[in-house]
């Protein structure tokens, strides 16, 4: 399989901050809103460079979403920033009515998603946000895998017209994708080709899946790994092409099994090409305090879980 290396670990939220600064320089209609988490979202550089286009909303996320919707009326492109929990569940009705149903060009940018938020615990570790967002008609849902890709996705969103949800995280993770690769919304990224099993991963689980592929290769198993950075719209063509070849599937994500990427892929495959599928995801549970790595292990979304899911699905093939 193709070898993946990285020179440093970086947090995906910093990729967002860097991308936001870039598009702020490029397009004067880009505005940023934050609900008292400027530092956490890495929006400080944008705030410093464009104070007149940075709107501090305080700890009032519902209002922030409405203000963002209103800013689009007048041609602005608002990027809202807060934790994923407060970007989705807390403001679901505001997103549903004022953004999604109203088809407003709001980019909801959400950091600290999933278990890897760590020690703050389950109150802040949303594992339902992908499901919430993908259910909204017309909503684009993006979950990039590293710093470079998060930056590229943020930049791509400036040109994208319509409501979008961009999910990223807190911890430093291997930054392995090519910084020069443009981000194509809705286009799955084939990381390595293989013949025995298709692994579809998103977000932080993409690197875990790479590690799993290396372990499995040593065992003589050939994995095809595809990064599904856009969960909606799903790249059905790429997924089906891979599965028609491998005839079994493992999905991997830092999210509840219900409503996540695995769910979307299972729905597609059950209709178009039913094959055995195993899902590496949190199984109907809240998280808890701990280090990101401890939590990934305890809740079954770490590298060994991807390895065992592949071994299990191969038995069912």
């Amino acid at each position: 399989m193709k070898k993946f290396t990285y020179t440093e670990k970086k947090d995906t939220r910093s990729g967002f901050g860097a991308g936001l600064l870039d598009i702020g320089k490029k397009n004067p209609n880009v505005v940023a809103l934050c609900a008292d988490l400027t530092g956490s979202l890495k929006m400080d550089a944008f705030e410093k460079e464009f104070p007149e286009r940075f709107i501090q909303c305080g700890i009032a996320e519902a209002n922030m979403i409405g203000v963002a919707a209103g800013l689009t009326i007048g041609g602005k492109i608002p990027f809202t920033g807060t934790f994923a929990n407060f970007s989705t569940g807390r403001v679901y009705d505001q997103i549903r009515q004022s953004v999604a149903y109203s088809n407003k060009n709001v980019k909801i940018c959400a950091s600290h998603a999933g278990l890897t938020l760590g020690e703050d615990g389950a109150t802040h570790q949303i594992l339902e946000d992908i499901g919430l967002m993908k259910m909204l008609p017309g909503m684009t849902v993006i979950c990039p895998c590293d710093y470079n890709q998060t930056k590229a996705a943020t930049i791509a969103l400036e040109k994208h017209v319509g409501p979008a949800y961009l999910r990223f995280g807190r911890p430093a993770v291997p930054n392995f994708t090519d910084a020069a690769t443009p981000f194509e919304i809705g286009k799955a990224q084939i990381l390595t080709e293989g013949k025995d099993v298709s692994i579809f991963a998103t977000g932080h689980l993409v690197w875990k899946a790479i590690e799993a592929c290396e372990i499995l290769e040593a065992k003589g198993i050939s994995c095809e790994l595809i990064n599904i950075h856009t969960i909606k719209p799903l790249d059905e063509k790429a997924i089906l092409a891979s599965v028609r070849k491998t005839k079994c599937v493992v999905t991997a994500e830092e999210h509840q099994r219900n409503g996540g990427l695995g769910d979307s892929i299972a729905q597609l495959l059950s209709k178009e090409f039913p094959v055995p599928i195993e899902m590496v995801a949190v199984n109907d549970s809240f998280g808890e305090s701990g280090t990101p790595s401890e939590l990934m292990t305890k809740y079954g979304i770490d590298t060994p879980n991807v390895v065992s899911a592949v071994e299990k699905v191969l038995m069912r093939k």
Binding site: G66, Q94, S98
Partner: peptide, 18 residues
Amino acid sequence: VASGSLGQGMSVACGTAL
């Protein structure tokens, strides 16, 4: 903008005013 689910319009109006 859509309205009906109450309480949202003032925020939207603020955004458009900005």
